[in-house]
Simulated scan of single mutants.
Amino acid sequence: MMPGMGLTAIGVTGVTISYAGIAHTFVDGMHALTGLTMFIGLIFLSAGILDGGVSTSNRAKATTLVILSIGLSFGTFALTMNSSNYTITLAGLLMAVAFPSIIISYLAMKMPQYAKPVGAIVALASATGIIMWFAFGFVSPDTYMINEPVVEEVKEEMISTAPVFTISILKDSAIQGNPDYEPDVAHVPKGDVIEWINEDTVPHTVTSSVDFGDTFNSNMMNAGEKYTLDTSKLASGEYEYMCMVHPWMVATLIIEEPKGEVKVMIPQGSGTQKEGQLYYDPTTITVPVGTPVVWDNVDNVVHTVTSGKDATPDGTFDSGLIDAGKTFKFTFSSPGKVDYFCMVHPWMVGSVEVE
């Protein structure tokens, strides 16, 4: 009986913690493990009562008092402060198991002649309930007994045109001490979309640290998978995030208020290489971190704005072909100097110094 009561208490506490929203790490596993522990405890408890009756020793009374205190404390919290929709269902299931068990145990100890018939009645009632539950899953009642379903209007999904900021989960980042997220500190203007790409060969997560994923959480990202986050829903400020599978992988996301755009002109005639011609105007600019830069093609031919030197792209950004009269915008979220050129006219070069 004693081990049964202990295991039951542990199981009840674990299930309550999980469903109360306190535990976020591997929560499904906690549900399964604590539920299993609780029901094993109930089996031990029932076996102890049926074998030796209910103990009336001081030790048993003290244990019972402790278990009731723990169960009532966590039960009160679960019913009043949790965000789960299943707490009442769980409590109902527990009572459906506990009350018949208590009654049968009492009868087995005090009035054994009634234990078998009452047990048979409970078993038949349980079997009937289970059969009816599954039966209604296959054969529904007439529609007049059911409210008409509310048909929600399907809205077309809007394609985001916000700038995309890419963060890489680096190869071999699962090994403690290796570089993990790149960049490790990301300055992103509010309203941009962040895209994490898992370049490693093992699963990772992108999970806000302070609240264990309440602010944002990618769940498991397998190799090659992506996770996107719309920063327009986040308040400006600093967010630390981590990988729940490898908790030593930690990085920082800084959401900043959008800064004013800086414009660079691609002037007329820049497609022709000649002395005195401005190709990007101004050729060199200095901007704070988080500043969007807009290149405006006022020439009459196509151009590109491609990061790199000596006509070799480095992959930081690439506008593709910018038609005459069109623009390209890129937000610089990391400090440093960035050189760029035109893929069509490689003599056209410029640079951005990010502070």
Score class of each variant (00 low, 15 high):
21 G>P: 10
67 I>A: 06
106 Y>A: 10
105 S>V: 12
76 T>E: 00
104 I>R: 01
57 S>Y: 05
113 Q>I: 14
105 S>D: 09
73 S>A: 15
50 L>N: 05
52 G>V: 14
101 S>V: 15
11 G>Y: 12
71 G>D: 02
66 V>D: 00
95 M>Q: 07
108 A>C: 03
106 Y>N: 11
70 I>T: 13
92 G>Q: 05
55 S>L: 02
59 R>Y: 06
60 A>K: 08
62 A>P: 04
15 V>H: 02
20 A>R: 10
75 G>K: 12
68 L>C: 06
82 N>M: 08
110 K>D: 05
37 T>Q: 01
92 G>N: 07
112 P>T: 15
14 G>P: 09
114 Y>Q: 11
47 A>K: 13
73 S>M: 14
6 G>R: 05
61 K>H: 14
105 S>I: 12
100 P>L: 06
65 L>V: 14
88 I>F: 03
20 A>T: 15
59 R>N: 03
51 D>E: 03
86 Y>I: 14
25 T>V: 12
113 Q>T: 14
111 M>R: 14
8 T>H: 05
7 L>S: 01
12 V>K: 01
62 A>R: 14
81 M>I: 08
8 T>G: 04
104 I>W: 00
103 I>P: 01
107 L>A: 10
34 T>R: 02
87 T>E: 00
14 G>W: 05
81 M>W: 05
37 T>P: 02
64 T>R: 09
117 P>S: 06
32 A>L: 14
61 K>G: 02
75 G>R: 13
8 T>L: 11
98 A>Q: 09
95 M>T: 15
82 N>S: 15
43 I>Q: 00
65 L>W: 12
43 I>N: 01
98 A>T: 14
85 N>E: 03
117 P>R: 14
93 L>W: 11
16 T>M: 06
51 D>R: 13
63 T>P: 02
54 V>W: 05
48 G>Y: 09
89 T>N: 02
95 M>S: 13
100 P>E: 02
16 T>D: 00
40 I>L: 12
57 S>V: 12
51 D>T: 11
9 A>E: 00
31 H>R: 13
96 A>Q: 09
22 I>H: 10
49 I>D: 05
67 I>F: 04
62 A>C: 03
65 L>K: 13
69 S>P: 03
37 T>G: 08
27 V>K: 07
10 I>K: 03
95 M>P: 07
88 I>V: 15
116 K>T: 14
12 V>D: 01
93 L>N: 06
66 V>A: 01
16 T>E: 00
36 L>K: 08
111 M>W: 07
84 S>D: 11
49 I>A: 05
30 M>N: 07
54 V>R: 08
114 Y>P: 02
80 T>H: 08
26 F>N: 12
112 P>E: 04
18 S>T: 15
75 G>V: 13
94 L>W: 10
22 I>P: 08
113 Q>A: 05
20 A>S: 15
77 F>V: 15
118 V>S: 03
89 T>L: 05
39 F>L: 14
118 V>M: 08
50 L>H: 11
94 L>G: 11
39 F>N: 10
30 M>H: 12
73 S>F: 15
13 T>H: 07
58 N>Q: 09
49 I>K: 09
21 G>M: 04
97 V>W: 12
35 G>R: 10
118 V>C: 07
20 A>G: 13
28 D>F: 12
22 I>G: 06
32 A>N: 12
17 I>Y: 06
102 I>D: 01
27 V>N: 10
85 N>T: 13
111 M>D: 10
82 N>Y: 06
77 F>E: 00
45 L>H: 04
105 S>E: 03
28 D>N: 13
